[in-house]
């Protein structure tokens, strides 16, 4: 019997593309109200695992359980719209689900992107685009949010802000969040559990324990420790609302 706080459970999943093994015997679980972060180097299979979770890819081995009637909000990795398609932020947001204009304005306020509604999608900044993508995922009232590299193309200050926003969404909406990150230094603070992936599952657990794990250190080297120190330093200078 699977507990009803479990939103999604991936069991012993393997994915192969012809000769190449993208995922080897991976297990993962996301519970309601929990933030799980997938980290790993390029080509580690993070996006493949996300596609398995979303149901876009059927694994050759293993099983995927999704809670009955689960609503998944997905924020894809970077979006570029061809300039030949005239599309405002408003029209883009209404593509995923039908909503009133005031609902669209409310969700833009939630993600901190007020006043973008009538702007063409091609004319907004990278940071604004990420927030608009997040807004489209939130409009579906998701039980589970899947965010693929949410900080892509965002400057360092914006990255902190986005992670804070994600933590805030979790505490306000109580949804589970599965997030992919390329790197880990900033991610660590906002996450309950880190899963370190490199085709196989290297290690997982609380951020503090993962950063001390030999497999993690081998994968990311000494640089990782340094980056984390920078963050901790930054944090001591008075980032609010942490623990």
């Amino acid at each position: 019997m699977i507990s009803d706080t479990i939103l999604i459970q991936v069991c012993n999943v393997s994915v192969r593309f012809q000769q190449y093994t993208a995922l080897d015997n991976i297990s993962l679980e996301v519970q309601r109200g929990e933030i799980i972060t997938l980290i790993g180097p390029n080509g580690a299979g993070k996006s493949t695992l996300v596609r398995v979770v979303l149901g876009l890819l059927k694994p050759q081995n293993g099983s995927v359980y999704r809670q009955a009637g689960i609503r998944i909000g997905y924020m894809p990795q970077g979006l570029s719209i061809d300039p030949v398609l005239p599309l405002t932020v408003e029209r883009f947001l209404s593509l995923g689900s039908s909503n009133t204009k005031s609902a669209l304005e409310r969700v833009l306020e939630e993600v901190g992107a007020v006043g973008l509604l009538m702007r063409p999608l091609q004319n907004i900044s990278g940071g604004e685009m990420q927030r608009v993508l997040l807004a489209r995922a939130l409009l579906r009232e998701p039980d589970l949010l899947v965010l693929d590299e949410p900080i892509q193309g965002v400057d360092i200050i914006g990255q902190y802000e986005l992670y804070e926003l994600i933590a805030q969404i979790r505490s306000q909406r109580g949804c589970g969040i599965l997030m992919v990150s390329h790197d880990l230094h900033i991610v660590m603070s906002a996450t309950d559990q880190v899963v370190c992936l490199n085709q196989h599952l290297c290690c997982s657990g609380h951020p503090e324990t993962v950063t001390k794990h030999p497999a993690y250190l081998e994968l990311f080297g000494a640089r990782a420790g340094r980056d984390l120190a920078i963050y901790t330093h930054h944090h001591e200078q008075g980032k609010p609302n942490r623990e």
Binding site: R51, L54, G55, L56, I72, Y74, P76, L79, I81, L85, L87, F92, L95, G96, S97, R136, R140
Partner: peptide, 17 residues
């Protein structure tokens, strides 16, 4: 119309939705 437009913008996002 709506589905086709959604696919043009992002195929996988459309599939998830």
């Amino acid at each position: 119309w709506q589905s086709l437009l959604s696919i043009i913008v992002h195929e996988e996002l459309a599939a998830v939705e």
